[in-house]
């Protein structure tokens, strides 16, 4: 599944993932945002990996924030925007 979200006032955020046994699998975040350190990218993917599909958005945002390395900076992207993108990927194919 594939979702894209142009964060208002920000950059393009993209999430690709699969579902396995009711959980997120193979989560891959990408886009033209700015994120430092760059090692934060796989950390975010790992924080989303294996989460149950029934999880609420606030818990997902908190999971990302808790996993980020100390001093991580984001420009044109946010934890909330990542979760919006992930929801779009899950609803892929549904009418807008």
């Amino acid at each position: 599944m594939h979702g894209e979200y142009k964060m208002p006032g920000g950059k393009l955020v993209v999430v690709d993932l699969d579902l396995r046994d009711g959980r997120f699998a193979g989560v891959r975040l990408s886009g033209d945002f700015f994120l430092e350190p760059d090692a934060a990218l796989p950390v975010i993917n790992a924080a989303l990996e294996g989460q149950p599909t029934g999880i609420d958005d606030a818990t997902l945002v908190a999971a990302i924030d808790a996993a980020l390395p100390a001093g991580t900076t984001m420009y044109g992207i946010s934890s909330a925007a990542i979760v919006v993108t992930l929801r779009r990927a899950l609803h892929e194919g549904a009418p807008a």
Binding site: V14, D16, R28, L29, S30, G31, D32, F33, L35, D38
Partner: peptide
């Protein structure tokens, strides 16, 4: 391409 862009996309 940018550091975080998907090559395929």
């Amino acid at each position: 391409i940018g550091r975080f862009q998907s090559l395929r996309n």
